[in-house]
């Protein structure tokens, strides 16, 4: 089967700091792939290349049959509209209410009427079990609620691919389960492909079909979580506390 996302020999440096040193990986359609690794291993930098928030120094980023790193203008916009992104802190617009955060996207990218947009927002909020937060301000939400609402905003336009940048960082175990279960539901109910950047073992355990372990800018190990955990490489044993 043709991969949904294919990254080939990706290199990225910031000044003298070489963050990615030739990362290659593939994500099959409908699967959830976790990219694990410690802080500063280049996980977030890697995922940002998939939506061209960063451009590589060299290497290729394929999404379907398009090279994301080469797209410009409308072509890039069209591809981005099929990708949802959950940022580390949620990135909800704090000058708007929760509903306005959704409407910001829906109003600009759909031809739905006001009433239809309201229905869609309620549907999305119900999906993440936070329908009562329709008029709330992002400042009044807990960390877990913020992530769930940002996730719902990310899927507002029915994307085919969802990117998660540390979706469970800073959350209590109950919220980690809630968010991780939502990632699983995206795959099972909506047949969505996902890349999850995480260093949270519980999140990977619940959500990931496949794990890539990133260390100092290179994929050190790849396989199921169990296979990666059983690796005898010292970096992995150190990470998983084995």
């Amino acid at each position: 089967m043709k991969p949904a996302v294919r990254i080939v020999d990706l290199h990225k440096s910031f000044g003298a700091n070489e963050v990615l040193k030739g990362v290659s990986m593939e994500v099959e359609p409908g699967k959830t792939v976790a990219v694990m690794g410690g802080s500063g291993s280049g996980k977030s930098v890697l995922i940002k290349h998939v939506v061209q928030l960063l451009l590589p120094d060299s290497g290729e980023v394929w999404y379907g049959d398009k090279r994301m790193d080469l797209l410009r203008g409308k072509e890039l916009d069209d591809q981005r509209l099929t990708i949802g992104y959950l940022f580390q802190g949620g990135a909800l617009f704090d000058s708007m209410s929760v509903a306005e955060n959704f409407d910001f996207v829906l109003d600009r990218h759909t031809s739905l009427t006001l009433a239809e947009r309201k229905d869609r927002i309620e549907e999305l909020l119900t999906w993440v079990e936070l329908e009562e937060k329709f008029n709330a301000s992002p400042a009044d939400l807990s960390g877990g609620q913020r992530k769930r609402i940002a996730l719902a905003r990310g899927i507002a336009l029915d994307p085919k691919l969802m990117l998660f940048d540390e979706p469970t960082t800073g959350l209590d175990p109950v919220s980690v389960r809630l968010v991780s279960d939502l990632i699983v539901r995206l795959r099972d109910e909506l047949d969505m492909t996902s890349i999850v950047i995480t260093h949270d073992l519980l999140c990977a355990e619940i959500a990931a079909d496949h794990v890539n372990f990133l260390f100092e800018g290179l994929i050190l190990e790849s396989g199921t979580l169990d296979e990666v955990q059983r690796s005898d490489k010292p970096e992995l044993r150190n990470f998983f506390g084995g």
Binding site: K48, L76, R80, G89, A91, L92, F93, D94, F104, H109
Partner: peptide, 20 residues
């Protein structure tokens, strides 16, 4: 301050990812 804090909380990146 407003745009700066939108930058550090990735709200500007979020606008870009929304193809805006």
């Amino acid at each position: 301050a407003e745009i700066g804090s939108m930058r550090v909380t990735e709200q500007i990146d979020a606008i870009e990812v929304m193809a805006l």
